[in-house]
């Protein structure tokens, strides 16, 4: 008899218990990574610029994220007199919450068997997982536009408008690169996409795993660039270009509301890294055995994060017209061509 999937019907107590355990562990790990990503960024950029970065709070500034958090709690919570209060308060939530909950469909390990029942190591295995990711990536735009508009400040408005135009432009190319991945996988469930990537690649390349980065290198390249632009990281951080827009859409925010924008930026970095690792780099399959799958996945995420931070220390900000030109005139045609060529090849091989 093959073991069944654990579900609410065959073992309700165990199901709810394990579900809550998974939820709490994933949530805590994500929040911890977000907090320490800020510390890592300051440290790494510091050392790249031959500075030390934070050193005072704890050993090599390890307690800095906690100190910053406490400081931000005690800062004054300013609501500008001309702001539209309800959207102004909703905006930071609308940015951070979609970023956190996108992680729910990322599988972080192989299926485990608990008392004869299969438990997937994933918060939820939606059969439309890829579409779920696209939907929630799109939701982040609302928060930024709302923040920019409701502050009733010119810098915020300009930041918000820029951000929305930038994000929707790059979303097209991002969506198309993901399409070319699920044409190869023929499923939208991320758990199955990862399982398919554990098989060896064909022919002479069978020493390599069937990671989609090998079969879709252009899509991977485009996805990383569009991902950077979607999360407004350098070199695409036009919406909060300090030198021209003060702080962009979060100019009027203070205290914990500002911190939520800050956290959302790092949460989005983690999300994009996790999606890129899952769709293109085999998710939790990797050099370590699958019982240590979580470490494989975390390793890939950390590598991506380091790459993003490294880019920030290296590249200057692009100009807005360059940014839009690249999105519409380079990335979109390339992504379209990639989908058509992929379609041709898969129909031919079928």
């Amino acid at each position: 008899m093959t073991p069944e999937m654990l579900s609410l019907s065959n073992s309700p107590g165990l199901f709810v218990g394990l579900m809550l355990l998974k939820l709490i562990v994933v949530f805590s790990v994500v929040m911890l990574m977000v907090a320490y990503a800020t510390w890592c960024e300051r440290k790494i950029i510091g050392h790249m610029q031959t500075r030390l970065g934070p050193m005072r709070t704890g050993w090599h500034g390890l307690l800095q994220p906690i100190a910053d958090g406490i400081k931000l709690f005690f800062k004054e919570d300013i609501i500008p007199s001309q702001a539209s209060v309800v959207p102004f308060l909703l905006a930071p939530m609308m940015i951070l919450v979609p970023a956190i909950i996108t992680v729910a469909v990322i599988p972080f390990g192989p299926d485990v068997t608990v008392s004869g029942l299969i438990v997937p190591l994933q918060i939820t295995d939606l059969n439309v997982g890829v579409l779920y990711i696209l939907a929630f990536a799109g939701l982040g735009v609302y928060g930024i536009v709302l923040a920019g508009w409701s502050s009733n400040s010119k810098y915020s408005l300009l930041g918000g408008v820029r951000a929305s135009a930038q994000m929707i432009s790059y979303e097209l190319a991002a969506g198309l690169t993901i399409v070319s991945v699920f044409m190869l996988s023929e499923t939208l469930s991320l758990r199955e996409i990862v399982a398919l990537q554990s098989e060896p690649l064909w022919g002479t390349f069978s020493f390599l795993p069937n990671w989609y980065v090998f079969t879709q290198p252009l899509a991977f390249f485009l996805f990383v660039i569009t991902g950077l632009a979607e999360i407004n990281r350098t070199p695409f951080d036009m919406p909060e270009a300090e030198s021209e827009l003060v702080s962009g859409f979060c100019t009027e925010y203070s205290s914990m509301k500002y911190a939520l924008f800050f956290l959302a930026e790092y949460a989005n970095m983690i999300v994009v890294s996790a999606i890129a690792a899952t769709l293109f780099l085999g998710g939790w399959y990797g050099p370590l055995p699958s019982s240590l799958g979580v470490i494989n996945l975390l390793g890939k995420i950390v590598a991506f994060m380091f790459f993003f931070i490294w880019l920030r220390a290296t590249l200057p900000r692009v100009r807005y017209d360059q940014l839009m030109r690249m999105g519409w005139k380079v990335l979109l045609p390339l992504a379209l061509a990639n989908v058509v060529v992929t379609g041709f090849v898969v129909v031919l091989l079928q």
Partner: peptide, 26 residues
């Protein structure tokens, strides 16, 4: 169900953070 609870946790935490800073702030 799992997704709904996860969204609930995220919303709850963010709301707590905002309320705390509203109460504690100068």
């Amino acid at each position: 169900l799992a997704l709904g609870i996860y969204v609930g946790i995220a919303l709850f935490l963010v709301a707590i953070l905002l309320l705390l800073s509203w109460g504690l702030g100068h």
